[in-house]
Nucleic acid binder design. Structure first.
Lengths: 205, 205
DNA sequence: ATATATATGTACCGAGCGGTACCGATATAG
DNA sequence: CTATATCGGTACCGCTCGGTACATATATAT
């Protein structure tokens, strides 16, 4: 069997899959999972319902694909870069400032999809809530591992607690997402980052 | 015209209004506004639909009444007490630790209603989102005023920025709400509080 | 007792939900 | 050209949504 890009039979799709997925992502980001209807989606994506189902499965799968794309192309890539900075302090500073910037990017909805998407929801959407929850804790886990490395390298003191440090940084980032959705400006969030970094300076352990 | 508690005509209500309002609050708290259906509500409240509408108006008004009650009887009273402590440092410490405790109270849903209720939503619920947003910023405003007082009293240094300090504390509290809804334990949140307070100690300036 | 006022319960409303059957259109394979 | 496979569009499905009409039950006022 040849690869996926083998010559395809049948009528070719008339839209670009990634392009319309971006449109869907934007709607979910703004409205949340439960707040977004299929009509909202098809209108924004410029395709009709059966095409959506043929290409993406159903609303739930579409959301998860949009979430993957969000993480991959949005904050994920930026955060990955932050994690590779040489010191824990530099990692945190980069993580927080880039978050403040992205959360208030005027070309996207305010806040973070992984927070806005479905903090609480009806029973039917519980699987979505859990997917978002896992994404958030994955980010926290990566940060914790980076801090453990820093501790091993002597960059962080022997009495420091990587898990608590990571949780603190994630908490500030998630709080900033709530702030952004409430209308906080970029300058507002950068002031928060300054405060948060002071906690860092005085507890490198 | 006599007061509200004058002898009432007609068939008396068979349920206690505040009692069933508490039930509704609990459901909204757990499921969010859009995630809660009228059937969820009537089932939890133990009354039927027309009784609900007669007593509380509609779903939206019921939510706002539940929110008022939440603020009044729950975090509102606790936070009010915190604000009256003598120093800004004591205020912040009390605010954060009591938040960590309340957000993980096993007898209530995790997190804060004002954060979980509707961070993002469909167009129809925009009024709810805004009401929650106003509640959050009201709390921030009260805290800022408390810090301004502290600055005037010399408790906070002349170069301190009450608005940024208040926003920082609120950001941590809101982030803790997200953490709680993701399963963070009370100990987890108290560790975050410790970290957050270190920022405080090193920036009273 | 009668009139009035309010509460309850059943049974229903139109609208919108997520999801799909079906058919015509358009591509490749032989 | 024919067969096959996929796409796009219309028109629809059953279900649940928030909200209500209406009849009945239960209290007070006179």
């Amino acid at each position: 069997m040849i690869g996926r890009e083998a010559v395809q039979k049948g009528r070719p799709r008339e839209f670009d899959k990634e392009q319309v997925l971006d449109k869907a992502l934007h709607v979910f980001w703004k409205r949340g999972y439960e707040g977004t209807s299929l009509s909202d989606l098809t209108e924004a994506m410029g395709i009709n319902r059966p095409s959506l189902y043929a290409a993406f499965g159903n609303k739930e799968e579409l959301f998860k694909l949009a979430l993957d794309r969000y993480v991959e192309k949005g904050p994920g890539s930026v955060h990955r870069a932050s994690l590779q900075l040489p010191t824990a302090r530099a990692v945190v500073e980069s993580l927080l400032t880039s978050s403040a910037t992205m959360l208030t990017d005027p070309s996207t909805p305010p806040g973070c999809l992984a927070v806005q998407g479905a903090l609480s929801c009806g029973e039917a959407s519980e699987s979505i809530k859990q997917a978002l929850c896992e994404r958030r804790s994955l980010g926290e886990q990566q940060l914790r591992q980076r801090f453990e490395r820093a501790k091993n390298e002597g960059d962080l003191g022997p009495d420091s607690d990587p898990a608590s440090l990571a949780r603190y940084v994630m908490t500030v980032m998630q709080g900033m997402s709530v702030q952004a959705s409430g209308g906080a400006t970029r300058a507002d969030l950068l002031a928060v980052v300054d405060m948060a970094l002071k906690a860092w300076s005085s507890s490198k352990g």
